[in-house]
């Protein structure tokens, strides 16, 4: 797991939201939110779309949407799950558009993402890491999401449930299936 940005990390979500809603400079408060969450959100998107340039574009869209919607944020969910939900939706929409644009069936999308991984100048995984990434790309999209959130982001099932709108039990089962499939791909 890549480290979180340590800049401004000491602000709690509560502090940041209070600054945004009640402070004199919401732009500044939003900038602090971006600094606090940019890394985990970026890595979450990057693992889904693989290419750095695509992840960068999606990141900007995510925070633009967050900026527009933050005014109506009701604090019913945690700030980070709310941001992850926007990021997940944006990443899935991107992949859907990619499929439509190139008329790709699901298997070819994973093949294309594999090619992207091979060609990405910002990928430097060792042989085993590359093998694992390729195995992850063979999973169905939603299982891939669950696997990444648990394995790399070390996320609790309860938080995942809030992001993906599914029960924690179902996500646990999905993760276990994904791990078993991964095992078959890695150690056939």
């Amino acid at each position: 797991m890549q480290p979180f940005g340590n800049v401004m990390k000491h602000y709690s979500d509560e502090d940041l939201l209070t600054m945004f809603f009640e402070g004199e400079n919401p732009n500044y408060a939003f900038n602090l939110i971006v600094r606090k969450y940019q890394e985990p959100v970026y890595w979450h998107i990057r693992r889904m779309v693989i290419c750095h340039d695509d992840a960068n574009d999606i990141m900007q869209d995510v925070f633009l949407k967050a900026w527009k919607a933050l005014g109506s944020f009701r604090k019913e969910s945690a700030l980070f799950t709310w941001l992850y939900r926007i990021a997940t939706n944006e990443a899935l929409t991107f992949l859907k558009k990619k499929k439509k644009r190139y008329f790709l069936p699901i298997n070819d999308v994973s093949k294309q993402l594999e090619e992207t991984l091979e060609a990405d100048v910002y990928y430097e995984g060792n042989e085993m890491e590359k093998k694992i990434q390729k195995a992850i790309l063979k999973l169905p999209e939603k299982q891939r999401l669950v696997f990444n959130l648990r394995y790399f982001d070390e996320m609790k099932y309860e938080d995942m449930a809030e992001i993906l709108g599914t029960s924690a039990g179902a996500l646990k089962a999905s993760y276990h299936h994904a791990v078993k499939k991964m095992e078959k791909y890695i150690n056939p």
Binding site: Q2, W43, G125, N126, M128, F152, V179, E183
Partner: peptide, 15 residues
């Protein structure tokens, strides 16, 4: 799950 995966040895490889 009898898996050989080990997240502590796996950063994903992205930079």
């Amino acid at each position: 799950l009898k898996s050989s995966l080990d997240p502590s040895k796996d950063t994903g490889g992205f930079r």
